[in-house]
Amino acid sequence: MTPSSTTDAGQDSPGRRPPRSRAVRWALAVTAALVLLTVVDLAVLAGRVDRVAVSTTTGPGTTWVLVGLDSRAVLPAGASAEQFGTTDDVPGARADVVLVVHSDGDGTTVLSVPRDLVLTAGETSGRLALSWLDGPQATVDSLCGLGIPTDHLVSVDLAGFAEIVDATGGLAVDVPAPVRDPAAGLELTEAGLQQVDGRTALAMVRSRHPEQLVGGRWVPAPVDPDGRASAAGQVVDALVDRVQGTLTRPWELQRVAWAATGALTADEGTSARDLAALATWDLGPVTVLPVGDPVDDTLLRFPSPATADVIAAAGMSCAG
């Protein structure tokens, strides 16, 4: 009997790999394209982040310092100089909001540091907010004197913050009572959970003299020296929720990443990958760092024993 010239089913010539199916080839092509796009995307996004030269400090774990600046050089879209003032009225930039994010590998602590806290750097001392007038390094050094290291430093101005919030689609915040602050551009006439845009979120963070609606009349809200730090914590909590919600929606994540990288300034050692990794951290609630009460009728506040206790409990110390 003449041997058959056909190959048995399921067999192939020795030394030849079976041809890949069209679906497998398609999947590999898509995967390769996504990897390429991710690399290109990170490169493009990294190029959008402004850089500042600063000597970072070290300590246990990893610590990010996030600073909201009040520079009037660029105002939020639609905002007027009458509301915010000009660079002639308010020259320079102050550290209006300072958030510290620390991870020890097992958990994460997020602290909102009061801007009027008096800190010492070398032979000089002054309010944390004013330290930025001497440059980012002065702020990093002042925090180090308190025991807070800075592995990564990131700042954002007024316009950039509002733009990031708008890119997320706005924030859901819970307003206990109707509140307004004309000087900050804040006016929320209803209480309860509501969606706010970037300019309103910014106004909540900047408000220093809020008024509440009581019995149909606007009256000054009870004085709270931690009011701005608390508001910053609430807004950042909501912002983190929105940003992390986009991680499963790439089309939204791209929009937020584009806005954020165009708005942020970071130290030279912080990469786009570092920023992307921070967005995935489980940050938890923002806690206002406890400090002493205001001195007499001034804004000045000094560290208290509770300040050192909270920093130590978080696992932070600064080696300089």
Rank of each mutant, 00 (worst) to 15 (best):
T7Q: 12
D8E: 15
Q11Y: 12
D12I: 11
S13C: 12
S13E: 15
G15E: 13
R17K: 14
P19F: 06
R20H: 13
R20C: 03
V24M: 10
A29D: 11
A32S: 14
L42H: 08
A43P: 00
G47D: 08
D50G: 07
D50C: 01
V52F: 03
A53C: 03
S55K: 00
T58F: 01
G59H: 01
V67C: 09
D70L: 06
L75W: 01
P76R: 01
A79S: 13
F84Q: 01
D88W: 10
D89N: 14
P91H: 13
R94Y: 10
V98N: 02
V100I: 09
V101A: 13
H102G: 08
H102F: 11
D104T: 06
T108P: 03
S112I: 07
R115A: 04
L117V: 15
V118H: 05
L119R: 02
T120P: 02
A121S: 13
G122C: 08
G122E: 07
T124G: 04
A129D: 15
A129M: 14
L130P: 01
L130S: 15
W132E: 08
Q137M: 07
Q137Y: 06
A138N: 05
T139A: 14
T139M: 06
D151N: 13
S155M: 13
E163P: 02
T168W: 03
G169S: 07
G170Q: 03
V179P: 03
R180A: 12
R180Y: 13
A183G: 10
L186H: 05
G192P: 08
L193V: 12
L193W: 09
D197M: 00
A201F: 05
M204T: 06
M204E: 08
M204V: 09
V205N: 00
H209N: 14
H209M: 09
E211A: 11
G216R: 04
R217Y: 00
W218V: 05
V219T: 11
P220H: 12
P220W: 10
D224N: 13
D224Q: 07
D226A: 12
R228H: 06
A231K: 00
D241V: 02
V243C: 02
V243T: 05
T246W: 03
R249F: 06
P250I: 04
E252W: 06
A257D: 11
T265D: 05
D267M: 04
E268R: 14
S271V: 12
R273T: 15
A276D: 10
L278M: 14
L278K: 06
A279Q: 04
T280L: 15
T280S: 11
W281F: 12
L283A: 05
P285L: 10
T287F: 10
P294T: 14
D296P: 04
L299R: 06
L299V: 13
L300Q: 11
I311T: 04
A314C: 12
S317T: 14
C318M: 09
G320E: 07
